[in-house]
Design a protein around this nucleic acid. Sequence first.
DNA 1: AATGAATGAGGATTCATTCAT
DNA 2: GATGAATGAATCCTCATTCAT
Lengths: 190, 190, 190, 190
Amino acid sequence: MPKIGMEPIRRNALVKATIAEIGEAGSLDVTVSQIARRAGMSSALAHHYFGGKDQIFLAAMRQILRDFGAEVREALAASAPEARAAAIIRASFDPSSFAPATISAWMTFYMMSQTNPEARRLLHIYQKRLRSNLTQALHPLTPDPGAVADTLAALIDGLYIRAALDFPDRPQVATEHALAVLEQLLGGRE
Amino acid sequence: MPKIGMEPIRRNALVKATIAEIGEAGSLDVTVSQIARRAGMSSALAHHYFGGKDQIFLAAMRQILRDFGAEVREALAASAPEARAAAIIRASFDPSSFAPATISAWMTFYMMSQTNPEARRLLHIYQKRLRSNLTQALHPLTPDPGAVADTLAALIDGLYIRAALDFPDRPQVATEHALAVLEQLLGGRE
Amino acid sequence: MPKIGMEPIRRNALVKATIAEIGEAGSLDVTVSQIARRAGMSSALAHHYFGGKDQIFLAAMRQILRDFGAEVREALAASAPEARAAAIIRASFDPSSFAPATISAWMTFYMMSQTNPEARRLLHIYQKRLRSNLTQALHPLTPDPGAVADTLAALIDGLYIRAALDFPDRPQVATEHALAVLEQLLGGRE
Amino acid sequence: MPKIGMEPIRRNALVKATIAEIGEAGSLDVTVSQIARRAGMSSALAHHYFGGKDQIFLAAMRQILRDFGAEVREALAASAPEARAAAIIRASFDPSSFAPATISAWMTFYMMSQTNPEARRLLHIYQKRLRSNLTQALHPLTPDPGAVADTLAALIDGLYIRAALDFPDRPQVATEHALAVLEQLLGGRE
DNA sequence: AATGAATGAGGATTCATTCAT
DNA sequence: GATGAATGAATCCTCATTCAT
């Protein structure tokens, strides 16, 4: 007895299942059937709702990006103006970003960006937003917030990849590292 | 007309073909047959020489790493002691590192590292070597070469990914950016 | 036009096709595609329903064993107590057991038993059942039904293999042979 | 530096290696390369000497049959006339016949007989010889040596298969069993 | 809304066999 | 006599995707 208004519930379940499944597999080598089974439905229905595997994954990635965005917004709202840049850094290395599923999703996302335009578009949006957040946060702290933001953004990405791939215990080290650099970059001014 | 001593030739051809094919496809979604065809042999022979697809790719990655290592060594040899850190940075953003094939190979490599132990081992070796090179180069320039090396290494990775994925024209920007940060990090001393 | 409830039909068709195909080939050197084609479906569907080639074959063997078991049961039901041992012998050499497909299946089954645990399990079950049937049938006829049953069971297997491999026309000879031995073995009592 | 007169040595090594390899694999699923490697030569040479995989295996089977024939001959020569039938039975269940390699070879041999004429021919020869040996041995003991020989031959095959496939420890049981039946079959006369 | 049924297309891998040296 | 080189052909299996119900 098909219910009405199931669509958002189903889509949500699929997104969650996708993230979980990718996390367990460590890569995108996950079948649509596996995802659908975990989400409690047939693979046909998954296709019905999303149109194809890529789009299922993209939806999952959008979710991850959305969650991260929310985290950043919260962190910013709770911080004094001078602490906002640090807050962004802390959010970037939040343990939730180091869940195996999230790491795998990011790697897959990077790979996909090279051939899938929609993935590339998404990635650009994310990067622009991060840069904009950083620039704004740095505004009261340095005469050239854009330059510092660029450096920090790249550093965050680099530290993330290294922390993710190398040593599962390095998120904290990465945070401290980035914070130290931030200080140093700003310190040059004083 | 089978000649003797073909093995190294074939292996080499396969490695080259793998890199080229990955470059065109933008991912590891390349069949062994495609690679073998481009290398001018049957897929069976490719298997015969390497044992499997993963090992073919790993051999290709080793080649890329080897090439990069050689480039760094050359750059170091040709530089005055104070210019060595800058030389490593320049080598890291050498146009050869931004060939689509190289970028795709790196992404694939990152992905593989999450599940394939041999890939992970390779990646660690590469990272250790880069850090060691940087530390040594920074020795005459700063009292804490290790810390600066860590920052630079992460920054290089971050800038590389961003340059690779975002804007195919940004290698130069990345170089300058990294060099500027280097100066700033060292400048903290003065 | 996919109907619902096809599974048992498909499985059945595959089992039949497997037996037929093995019969024609004289061995398990039959591709899943051949079997599937004969069963009127794609090889992918065959895999979907059975999971793999071995399991397809095992299902076919189970069918053969089941058919044989039914035959024995019928023969036993229709026989007077003193004639039951003879009935089992007759059933064992029924022409249906000498269909090329059945012979090939048995040979394959024997081979498989050496490496495949499930096949070995099945074989043991079959042998236990045969022995139990024989023992029960011999109960009223001899003081040591177990010993006679063992001899008869081995004799039946030996005669079967010889009849199957040697002379396609020997089933009858085998039956008579086994019946004569039965008499002799029991005659020892008198 | 190719030596002269290597042919018999090579052939012998290959036959031995084939038996060993089949024994380890438990089936004919052994590659020519494996066999050749174990025999210390290239697979090409194996082909050169035997022409093909089937013929390599057939040569191995001939060896097994020859060994068994020799064993029987020896046993017969060492026995008093009344003990010859028993000697054949004992030879048939000699531990050497239950080496995994031998068992697997026999199974393979049976399978092959169904499609390979040369294998079938070989099998017939073996069976005729066994029957002839048994008949001769039974001559002084029973008025119908042919009939008893047929029964014993079938029983031996049946017990062999059962002993081989079921319980690796049953050779002795099989021997005793066959000897008991022999006695009984002859006893019917007295 | 939901799914069981079904498949085409492909893909890694294996192997017996051939051949030039 | 001996082999490294090479491959064609095959085979199992997987999976995203479609469709009738």
